[in-house]
């Protein structure tokens, strides 16, 4: 027996969902979705749960993560109930549910809070820089240290607990019992999905999107690896330097394409972007291009006289690492992969 919670649809609208109440449950969205199948039929069920406000059912479902938003459902929805956007909003909402700090939800719901958080981080970086009298070398050194510490801290303090919470909602709370061995044997799926998003290939739209995405993921991970572990900015190895240039170029070209598409609203999924979507892709672009510029200036020997450039890069980096990665859209990357992992576990 379930009770209806009409407040939920108002709550969900703060995460970007709209018009999904118009759904008259014809199931067309499910039928046109190429990822939907007999065992996992969506998005209609999710729309229905959202309309009725059956929060627990949504929390316990992986279906929002099984959708890769090709937009077919929205294009063909006879009631123009925006099923694709609802699924996107559910992912945002779930992110806020998984996040124990509650900051995700706050940032998604409030643009002001997001701007404030980003400003605070920027001011923090600037304050530190002035504290060090704008001493480039010192700042760069701390910057590199920050990167390593931030990754470790964000992951262990925020993301890991959040993944555990996700596991709790999906596996533990519904009372599923899964042998440990299964957790290990299924790990391969986790990584495959994390790095390749191969499920997108099943989508109806062109496979270019999947390829762009794949390139971006490798570019991003490459940049992370080069800057953090190979210390690109300070490295003398020609290989490392070239690698860094390549991956940063990849990042900003692909993101430029993405931004362009978002502006042109070419795809259904792009037509209703939320600030969090913009922020993710814009900051990724800025990261790529600023990192590229820092190394270029350094190679040209003019970085010394352009401290502001590294400061800009560091601000972007800090905002990325402290806001977007733990609380923003970046988490989708993680949750989606784990969703596939949990899905594999559930079906075993």
């Amino acid at each position: 027996m379930a009770a209806v919670n009409t407040a939920f649809s108002r709550e969900l609208s703060k995460f970007g969902a709209f018009d999904f109440n118009a759904c008259y449950n014809c199931g067309n969205c499910t039928a046109v979705c190429s990822l939907s199948n007999e065992t996992d039929s969506f998005p209609r069920e999710m729309i229905r749960f959202s309309v009725l406000g059956l929060e627990d059912d949504i929390k316990g479902s992986l279906k929002p993560w099984l959708c890769y938003y090709c937009g077919e459902c929205t294009t063909h929805c006879p009631q123009q109930a925006e099923p694709g956007e609802l699924m996107m909003s559910l992912r945002r909402w779930l992110t806020s549910v998984y996040d124990w700090t509650g900051l995700s939800g706050l940032l998604y719901r409030s643009l002001t809070a997001t701007v404030a958080a980003m400003t605070a981080v920027a001011l923090g970086v600037l304050a530190y820089a002035f504290h060090e009298d704008l001493h480039l070398e010192k700042i760069m050194h701390t910057g590199h240290l920050f990167e390593m510490v931030a990754i470790a801290a964000v992951f262990s303090v925020i993301l890991l607990p959040n993944l555990v919470r996700m596991w709790y909602f999906i596996i533990l709370k519904p009372g599923l019992r899964i042998p440990v061995k299964k957790y290990i044997t299924s790990l391969a799926d986790l990584f495959i999905h994390m790095f390749t998003q191969k499920r997108t290939l099943g989508c109806d739209d062109s496979q270019v999107r999947w390829f762009e995405h794949l390139v971006l993921v490798f570019g991003y991970l490459g940049l992370l690896f080069t800057t953090v572990f190979l210390d690109w900015f300070s490295s003398d190895s020609a290989f490392v330097i070239t690698l860094g240039y390549v991956v940063s170029i990849i990042i900003f070209t692909v993101t430029i394409i993405f931004v362009g598409e978002r502006i042109a609203r070419k795809r259904e999924m792009n037509s209703k972007s939320q600030p969090s979507d913009w922020m993710f892709v814009v900051w990724l672009f800025l990261m790529g291009i600023s990192a590229f510029a820092v190394r270029l200036f350094s190679d040209l020997g003019i970085l010394e006289s352009n401290t502001w450039l590294y400061l800009t890069h560091l601000i972007i980096l800090a905002q990325w690492a402290l806001v977007i990665v733990p609380f923003g859209k970046w988490t989708h990357f993680l949750y989606r992969s784990f969703a596939m992992y949990f899905d594999k576990l559930k079906k075993s």
Partner: peptide, 12 residues
Amino acid sequence: LRYEDINENRLR
């Protein structure tokens, strides 16, 4: 024919 059987809540 691809459809969602609403009674069964399933794609068919």
